[in-house]
Design a protein around this nucleic acid. Structure first.
Length: 392
DNA sequence: TCTGGGGTCCTAGGACCC
DNA sequence: TCTGGGGTCCTAGGACCC
């Protein structure tokens, strides 16, 4: 038996480490993976971090912090392949694997102790296997609950293991800033600081009802559990973050802000086509269609409409978001981003279309299938709506 | 030329039904 | 002649995570 059965395994600077496998000449230089233009950092290697570069930092600031930084384009296909191999390695240790993103998972090793040794030995073996097979490093936190294991892996970075026994949990947690807790972001952190609650220990020693009056019943209870390391100790085995997905969406920041309705409507068509295409390959349809609009000043609004029945038809989703957009009645407002999302997804086989007399819609679903078939044969750029074809 | 894109979950008010 | 209470759906916004 063990009192620390949970491992949290987290790849170190995952996207950057994978990208650097192809470019070993760059390992000693500051490297980030990220988009160009108005993008942000997706991952930074540890050399780049010495310049203060972090994930989510705008690329414009990155270049100011470190003008000679090397920027590599993300290659999601390779990231997914490496991720799948790593997850397979996890499942060779135990079937109790809860993946929470491409580069992170919890493992419950209770059933593997006799075969593979202590949790720490299992962690070290995993790390060397992944290093040998994938050429990247990872860090492992070991504890009795998921949030403590997660914080322990962060402490272990880069390329290490940290075990937190139950008797060490409070001395490990209580000195941390509340913002370190999993689920406490900038705004909850600021709220707690305003109440004079700066460390995890401060939160732990605040009476539950006082805490709940400050931050709400639900969050208060959750914070109390996190501050004592008494959150969940059982995993929910699954291969991905959430399966199946409950919503699918796409949004895109314009290269330059725009107030041109035609540009916006055309972008909405591209996004609707992208989203419904993914829905059709996943075999799902959804009823609630949401438009997202971000203005030049970064304020963001959403407008949604629930349809009488679920759809995966490009033109229906596009028509719905276009109506929502027109209903905003914008005149000269400059837009930074638009987005399309479909929620309330159900398997398409459960949707029974009520065919109405003389309904012209019928053809569009067949048109979508034809587009999907052509895209599979000739590539996704082969077939697209006429308004998305660049004019000469 | 600050601030991506993919998601999940929670809250809160109003409509509507029983 | 004063108007309960619960459940569910819909909409909008916000916090958070990777």
């Amino acid at each position: 038996m063990t009192d620390t059965p949970l491992l949290h395994v987290d790849m170190d600077a995952f996207y950057a480490s994978v990208a650097l496998r192809e470019r070993p000449d760059l390992v000693d230089q500051p490297v980030v993976v990220g988009g160009s233009g108005r993008g942000v950092v997706l991952a930074a290697n540890y050399v780049a971090r010495t310049y203060g570069i972090r994930s989510a930092l705008p690329m414009t600031r990155v270049r100011r912090l470190c003008p000679h930084v090397v920027v590599l384009e993300p290659d999601y296909a390779t990231f997914s392949t490496v991720s799948a191999s790593v997850m397979e390695t996890f499942r060779e240790v135990t079937p109790q694997v809860e993946a929470i993103s491409l580069d992170e998972a919890f493992l419950d090793v209770r059933g593997s102790l006799r075969r593979l040794g202590t949790p720490r030995e299992i962690a070290e073996r995993l790390r060397s296997t992944i290093h040998d097979e994938q050429g990247i490093t990872c860090s492992v936190g070991v504890a009795a609950s998921v949030s403590v294991a997660k914080l322990a892996s962060r402490r272990a970075k880069p390329d290490g293991v940290v075990v937190v026994r139950p008797s060490e949990v409070t001395s490990f947690l209580h000195p941390l800033d509340v913002g370190e807790l999993w689920g406490v972001g900038a705004s909850t952190q600021a709220l707690l600081h305003r109440f004079g609650l700066v460390t995890v220990g401060d939160v732990a020693h605040t009476p539950l009802d006082t805490l709940q009056r400050a931050v709400g019943v639900h969050l208060g209870r959750e914070l109390h559990r996190l501050a004592w390391g008494t959150d969940r100790g059982e995993l929910v085995p699954r291969a991905g973050p959430h399966e199946p997905e409950r919503s699918m969406g796409a949004d895109e920041t314009f290269a330059r802000d725009t107030d041109d309705r035609e540009v916006v409507v055309r972008e909405l068509l591209r996004l609707a086509a992208r989203v419904t295409g993914r829905m059709r390959s996943a075999g799902v349809a959804g009823r609630t269609v949401t438009l997202k609009v971000r203005f030049a000043d970064f304020t963001t609004i959403t407008r949604s409409r629930t349809l009488p029945e679920a759809t995966d038809v490009t033109v229906e989703v596009h028509r719905t978001v276009t109506r929502l957009y027109d209903a905003l009645g914008l005149q000269r407002a400059r837009l930074r981003l638009v987005g399309v999302r479909v929620e309330g997804l159900v398997p398409r086989t459960t949707v029974h279309h009520q065919l109405e007399l003389g309904e012209p819609e019928r053809g569009w679903a067949e048109a979508d299938r034809a587009v999907d078939r052509a895209a599979r044969r000739f590539g996704s750029s082969a077939v697209r709506p006429a308004s998305l074809v660049r004019r000469r």
